[in-house]
């Protein structure tokens, strides 16, 4: 004992002064110990940033969207619907090739193609965004109800069977045929079929997830259903929801082009990408006028590709499995 006494005394002396102290309870620090510095969104963002092409396209899309919104307010912009007159003849400035005055040329009645393309992009993007949003909201709501509520299961299944069994093209055509051609008609027609896919997907996922142990546990602890859905189930599905939404935009634009093609689209006094492309198709074999087809096609393709690739890489990035 003797040989350690000094040591022990030494330690106990020290400890009395500095070694052990009662710490104050700090709620913030207590909280911190329970969490790593992992943040879902930050990780998603970081792994998204690794895909250079997607980032590049995202910047591109932001610029395009920003530009379509800002374009009318920029200086030296022409109106998309005004018919410009030739100063010498006083007649419409028809089919003028791209020049300093008309950056993308004019169409067959003398309207400025540059501003028409941006106005068209605005219309088409607007349609796409609204459709995507409605699809997401309706699809998720119905999907969750369908998956979660046993009472609603049978009627929704029947509704689903009806809507899903008519080919999308036919529903699109029928709706635009019955309603008048306008932006809202196109949006309604697309929404009628659009939510189905999303709802089915959400439903299937929820059926799989709802009986997992952690949800059972949560339920046993008395968590209300809506909280289970919002906190436990939906975050799981975010990556897929984002993917579907970003794909819905190019799909909606494509559908608008298709409807215009069969003569059920927007009236041509309302510029849209579908209208511009459809007007341009006739000019395919005319080398001098082909620009009227090429410019809108390029804009459409760029937007479609961008959304497509961004959507895919975001879905990858949002998958927690890829975060480690």
């Amino acid at each position: 004992m003797g040989m350690y006494t000094d040591e022990i005394n030494n330690i106990s002396n020290k400890s009395r002064e500095t070694l052990f102290e009662f710490a104050e309870v700090d709620a913030r620090q207590a909280e911190e110990t329970g969490y790593s510095n992992y943040s879902y969104w930050r990780s998603t963002w970081q792994s998204f940033l690794k895909n250079r092409l997607a980032v590049f396209l995202l910047v591109g899309v932001i610029i395009i969207v920003g530009f379509t919104i800002l374009q009318p307010y920029l200086p030296a912009q022409k109106s998309p619907t005004e018919i410009y007159l030739d100063e010498q003849t006083g007649m419409q400035a028809r089919n003028i090739a791209p020049s300093a005055e008309f950056w993308f040329g004019t169409n067959s009645i003398g309207q400025d193609l540059w501003s028409r393309i941006w106005a068209g992009t605005r219309t088409s993007l607007f349609i796409g965004c609204v459709v995507a949003l409605v699809e997401a909201v309706v699809g998720i709501t119905i999907g969750t109800l369908w998956g979660f509520s046993r009472k609603l299961e049978a009627p929704i299944t029947q509704l689903y069977n009806v809507v899903d069994n008519i080919p999308t093209t036919i529903v699109l055509i029928l709706m635009s045929y019955i309603l008048r051609p306008s932006i809202s008609t196109i949006i309604i027609a697309m929404c009628i079929t659009g939510w189905v896919e999303m709802a089915r997907f959400i439903r299937n996922q929820i059926v799989i997830l709802r009986d997992r142990e952690y949800n059972l546990a949560s339920k046993c602890l008395g968590t209300p259903d809506y909280r289970i859905i919002l906190k436990n189930l939906l975050p799981y599905l975010i990556s897929v929801i984002m993917l579907r939404m970003s794909l819905a935009i190019p799909f909606a634009i494509g559908a608008e082009v298709f409807l215009t093609y069969i003569g059920l689209g927007l009236p041509i006094s309302e510029p849209s990408l579908g209208n511009l492309i459809n007007e341009g198709r006739v000019l395919m074999m005319s080398p001098d006028l082909r620009y009227q087809l090429i410019f809108p096609s390029i804009v459409l393709s760029v937007i479609t590709i961008a959304f497509y690739i961004i959507g895919n890489s975001f879905a990858d990035a949002a998958d927690p499995k890829n975060h480690v």
């Binding site: 067959s108 007007e279 006739v282 005319s286 001098d288």
Partner: peptide
């Protein structure tokens, strides 16, 4: 010949 390409034909 549609009006939109008539210029082309005459040129």
């Amino acid at each position: 010949i549609p009006t939109s390409i008539i210029d082309e034909w005459f040129k």
